[in-house]
Design a protein around this nucleic acid. Structure first.
Lengths: 197, 197
DNA sequence: CTAAACATACCGAGCGTTCGGTATGTCAAT
DNA sequence: ATTGACATACCGAACGCTCGGTATGTTTAG
């Protein structure tokens, strides 16, 4: 006996929309994806999408909110396995590498360049990003406190490290998965010990 | 005595278009800038722009070609002053920092995501990028050869370093000039010596 | 019956691009 | 030196199309 089939499932539908939207945004950026594109991918009509989301900006911000939250939840469950901040950094970069094709960083930049800085959605997204850096900062701070990393301003270090990873992610778009992983590992090597002999 | 007065000056006009286009593209990305935007900024009509360029893609590729060529020319005249590859790296990062507001890297990513990989313009731009990395690679290779840097694959190192700088440039969009310079210097410190204690 | 969930049809604005037309410049023949 | 033929530079209206968004209708759940 299967459960009663329901033609309407609001929660499921919203998840479907966000799922396809994420794939599209991460591949084509914010402006590169139209609502119609999302409709076609999700197999839904515009009316349905605009029933669940106020507008395109709202859709993107909600997507970013959920994506980053999920991503950190995933991270939390993994990171406990690693005792040192150094190991955590490698694990983080590996996680990043495995999700380059579903990363919203590029779309986020696009979104911020597109959306006016006065917009509410813009500030919401800005808050998400700030929070993201702050969470990453915790790893750095941990490394500093137990003597693994140099004792410098953790906020700046977090910003710089994340910039390196996001830059690498943007430029790895046309590489195969294996190479991406190798490059992210190499990047972490570099960020830890530098290129100087 | 002024130079010969001319009602039309094709070269000047084209330069004007490219100048304003560069400022707009670097701020709003490729898709974020319309031909009308460029018209308004340059004080010209659409017809005029399409007289000088085949289409939007052509305009962007020509702009990228000239920009990168100019940028390297500028670099060549500066870099001779520095004897070590380490010094050159700092000088390069400073040059990058001073031009974040006129950088086409983000617009280039946007362009590649927008334009089909089969397009001629796409491949032209790809060639420009490849050439750019190769030129930067020369600095790395020099550093390796005279024992400043670790003897690793210079192509990969160039790719990684440039990714770090471009990522930082993308994320520095809302910072003031002084902070951007400081962050780029910090990034170079990090890339040279790492964050490990 | 009511309300939520979804579809359909449509809107005005803006997009990249085209095109007919108009200045302006060049140059050879007179 | 003037003229007429032609090329170049530029304009602005308009095209076909897509965009984000809305109004309205239909289906399903409770």
């Amino acid at each position: 006996m299967t459960a009663k089939q329901r033609a309407y499932d609001s929660v499921q539908t919203k998840e479907t929309i966000l799922l396809h939207a994420k794939a599209l945004f991460s591949k084509k950026g914010y402006k590169g994806v139209s609502i119609s594109d999302i409709c076609a991918a999700a197999g839904l009509s515009k009316g349905s999408i605009y029933h669940h989301f106020k507008n395109k900006e709202d859709l993107f911000v909600q997507l970013a909110e959920l994506s980053f939250a999920d991503s950190w939840k995933d991270w939390d469950s993994r990171s406990v396995r690693f005792s040192s901040a150094t190991d955590k950094l490698y694990a983080y970069s590996e996680l990043y590498a495995d999700n380059v094709d579903l990363s919203l960083t590029k779309a986020g930049e696009d979104f911020m360049a597109t959306t006016g800085a006065d917009s509410a959605a813009f500030q919401q997204f800005g808050a998400i990003l700030t929070d993201y850096v702050r969470r990453f900062e915790d790893i750095i701070r941990e490394g500093i406190e137990n003597g693994e990393f140099k004792p410098e301003e953790p906020g700046e270090m977090a910003f710089a490290l994340l910039s390196s990873y996001s830059g690498l992610a943007n430029n790895s778009r046309y590489l195969d998965k294996e190479n991406v992983r190798r490059l992210f590992r190499k990047m972490t090597d570099m960020l830890l010990d530098g290129i100087r002999k």
